[in-house]
């Protein structure tokens, strides 16, 4: 008898759960891939970001990297570029003081006025650890998508022609869109 009184309660619960559930929507594709925010502009952190990006791409994951704030400097060309638009004094100063591209980044620790970075690079070469420039190149060869944050570019006065070719320029929606379609998201 007790079983008979329990059963309707369970059935009722099932019905109300069914009513509460959202109506069926279009099946969304299973997200896959890796999306990253590269916020840091320090050699060690950016090396980690590109090691992960290259590994993911080698494992056939679609990878997109969103470069913002200090990270935008990774995308700068190695030598000064005369921009079509004149920079303000502050923008010019930012441009001169911030690193121009992968080869000019400094370590986040043991920096020792640049000496630490030089020693680390020497040790990397000695132990066959790929340098950042080479990792950036192989990420591009593997089809990793680079997105530069427009807001950061504006803030620091960086113009598109100062950045390497083949990148997309976007804002937060570009990152959210990439993150929403990926299964792994990392902030470096």
């Amino acid at each position: 008898m007790s079983g008979a009184s329990v059963h309707p309660v369970v059935a009722h619960d099932e019905i109300s759960l069914g009513e509460a559930a959202a109506p069926p929507t279009e099946p969304t594709p299973q997200p896959s891939g890796l999306s990253m925010v590269v916020f840091s502009g320090e050699l060690d952190k950016v090396l980690a970001a590109f090691t992960i990006a290259n590994g993911a791409a080698a494992m056939d994951l679609p990878v997109s990297m969103f470069f913002t704030f200090w990270g935008i400097n990774v995308l700068r060309r190695g030598s000064p570029v005369t921009t079509s638009v004149k920079k303000t004094a502050m923008e010019g100063m930012f441009g001169r003081m911030m690193p121009r591209g992968p080869d000019h980044l400094q370590l986040s620790t043991l920096r020792m006025g640049g000496l630490g970075t030089r020693l680390m690079k020497r040790e990397m070469a000695r132990k066959h650890v790929a340098g950042l420039e080479s990792l950036v190149r192989s990420a591009r060869e593997q089809g990793v998508q680079f997105i530069a944050c427009q807001m950061s570019m504006n803030l620091m006065g960086l113009k598109k022609e100062e950045l390497i070719d083949g990148i997309t320029i976007g804002n937060v929606a570009s990152f959210i869109d990439a993150a929403d379609r990926s299964r792994i998201t990392l902030f470096v």
């Binding site: 590994g55 066959h128 790929a130």
Partner: peptide, 13 residues
């Protein structure tokens, strides 16, 4: 043998 992570994966690919 001349590469460190992620080199071997890239070489294998």
């Amino acid at each position: 043998r001349g590469t460190a992570c992620p080199g071997p994966l890239l070489e294998a690919k």
